[in-house]
Design a protein around this nucleic acid. Structure first.
Lengths: 334, 334
DNA sequence: TCTTCTTTCCAAAACCTTTTGGATTTTTGT
DNA sequence: ACAAAAATCCAAAAGGTTTTGGAAAGAAGA
């Protein structure tokens, strides 16, 4: 049904070789024939079949986006959407397409992640929102497929990563709070199955020690990145430490949950309790009071991941670990 | 490099025809050979090439997701992510893959949307977050490619749609507010380039008239679905109508913006001002006070879209217009 | 035993492109 | 005007699968 290269060749009175080379800008085709071919291709509305091309070139120019948290649980969406945006945009610029691969669907549970990529002959994979305990993680690292992971420091022969320097980000928070005179600072962390949680906790700990405030395990509470988790975390922390004057949350969503709990409990922020989040999602700027937080360059994360995976696929570049600098955004809650 | 059907055939001592038919469950292959072939295929870790298959079968089992709002502007993300989830999940179940097509990238501006779909030989398209004034809209309708549009009542030979009954949803809100005794009800709408805005406004108007409250154009304000827009809209409405006791926002995000403006202005909700949103995004349940809103079955929207497009592609089913029922969720702001 | 179905298998064509290795024509150098 | 070099073109192979139209072998019926 669709018009093929043969149709164009016939209409132009040349061989299909010539059509191919004319349209692809090779130098061994005369100027007049080239113009004729392009004109006719235009007229016939010829679109070269990407699948035929993929078959012969042995590359699909497609990268898979493996996201395990594409589930009903929505905690990560605020963060992920914009990473996705930057990633897709840069990939499109580089001439690659993005195909969704979810580990949570029924089909994926049967066909393994790797099988899927092999069958589709994906050129590379970007992994996002994966947990440390995800069974697919080993597959990714072991696979010969070029891959880059977001927010997980996985470095191997075929696997790079890009993430924000979470240790540094957390330290920025503590330094800021200490500078404001806070001595007793709590920390509501995300679940331990996220690499970022580990790093942010380390940053919190080191930051506290460096500020001379000491590290106390009971001032740390592990939640799950959700609004509710943030509220519960704050409640718990304040029960143990009624004299706490500042709390650092490992995500904006949790911080907002905390903010709401505080308001319901009649605790004013920042007067009675300073609150800091992490991520700088859109909502952070519009909460009342406006949330102090750590900004992650989300769309840049996506772009860097895209660039790296393309470099690996195209130029056989070596995978690297990219650490982006976080940025403290001071607003009203501190 | 990867193992092909030829390798399997050779190893099993049969023809490639037999391998193909054995693996695809045809009846004209003996039980013992079938077992042998499957065993060997397993051993060799054979994965049939989807691209070769696509070429010969003339179908890619891939549908494109055309989303024009995959931009830095984040207003729709809270809504779209979960539609995407339902859509992808159902598509995967049905054996189809989802590929992202954005109209906002540099590449798409050169190569038209249709060209992209043709080149990739997509079997179908789902369109989401598109505006009434989007230039691609005509392409979609005219295209012979099976397509279904979300939140835009576009029905043609090859194009169906699924959306929530927004007229009814808005009426539910007005009826609810009128039942609570409100007489002067404002409306902060989304931008006029969204079909949903048109419908929700109609629902508001009809609702007001049916409740005997009359329709007054100055009680309606057009915003843009953003937090800031909601805040500004409420401010404007209250300036014109200080005696307004209830405001209906065409999205939760705007309602939350309104809620925040109200709080900053010392206006308590629901005591002094009832507020209703639309969408029932996660945040609605966690705002203070918790937001009364209209629930859209977002993941069901995605699923229905997926099912329809597959039916059109596979069984040549006729496109339909699907209207899902909205649902009033009463919380604390009314 | 001979014919007629079944069952089981396979060679070859088809899908649409790119690339290889040469062939043919034109231009350049002398 | 002749050899060499450059420019322009093309036939055929390759890529990995499905499907078509038979062929070969075995079983059933006479």
């Amino acid at each position: 049904m669709p018009v093929t290269i043969r149709d164009v060749a016939k209409a132009a009175g040349v061989s299909i070789t010539t059509v191919s080379r004319a349209l692809n800008g090779y130098s061994d085709v005369g100027e007049k024939t080239r113009r004729k071919v392009t004109r006719i291709a235009e007229e016939l509305n010829y679109r070269p079949s990407a699948v035929a091309r993929s078959l012969v070139m042995n590359q699909t120019r497609t990268v898979g986006l493996l996201v395990s948290e594409l589930t009903k649980e929505r905690a990560g969406h605020y963060f992920m959407f914009q990473v996705l945006y930057g990633m897709h945009d840069r990939l499109a610029e580089l001439g690659y397409d993005l195909i969704l691969v979810s580990t949570t669907t029924a089909r994926q549970r049967l066909v393994s992640y790797l099988d899927f990529c092999m069958e589709r002959r994906l050129d590379g994979v970007i992994v996002m929102g994966i947990r440390l305990d995800d069974p697919y993680i080993q597959e990714v690292v072991d696979s010969p497929l070029p891959s880059v992971v977001i927010d997980l420091p996985l470095l191997s022969d075929h696997c790079g990563y890009v993430m924000t320097d979470n240790v540094h980000g957390a330290k920025l928070v503590i330094r800021h709070l200490a500078g404001r005179g806070h001595r007793k600072i709590g920390f509501v962390n995300g679940h331990s199955q996220a690499a970022v949680s580990r790093d942010r906790k380390r940053g919190y700990e080191e930051g506290m020690l460096q500020a001379g405030l000491g590290y106390d395990d009971t001032q740390v509470h592990e939640a799950d990145f959700t609004l509710q988790g943030g509220a519960d975390g704050l409640k718990h922390l304040l029960q143990c430490h009624p004299d706490m004057t500042a709390v650092f949350f490992a995500s904006d969503l949790m911080a907002i949950g905390g903010l709401q709990y505080a308001r319901e409990s009649g605790i004013r922020s920042p007067e009675e309790l300073a609150i800091v989040g992490y991520d700088d999602i859109e909502l952070a700027e519009f909460s009342t009071p406006r949330l102090t937080t750590i900004r992650q360059k989300r769309s840049e994360m996506g772009m860097r991941a895209a660039e790296m995976v393309v470099a690996m696929m195209k130029d056989h570049a070596a995978p690297q670990g990219v650490l982006l600098a976080p940025e403290l955004v001071v607003r009203d809650t501190t």
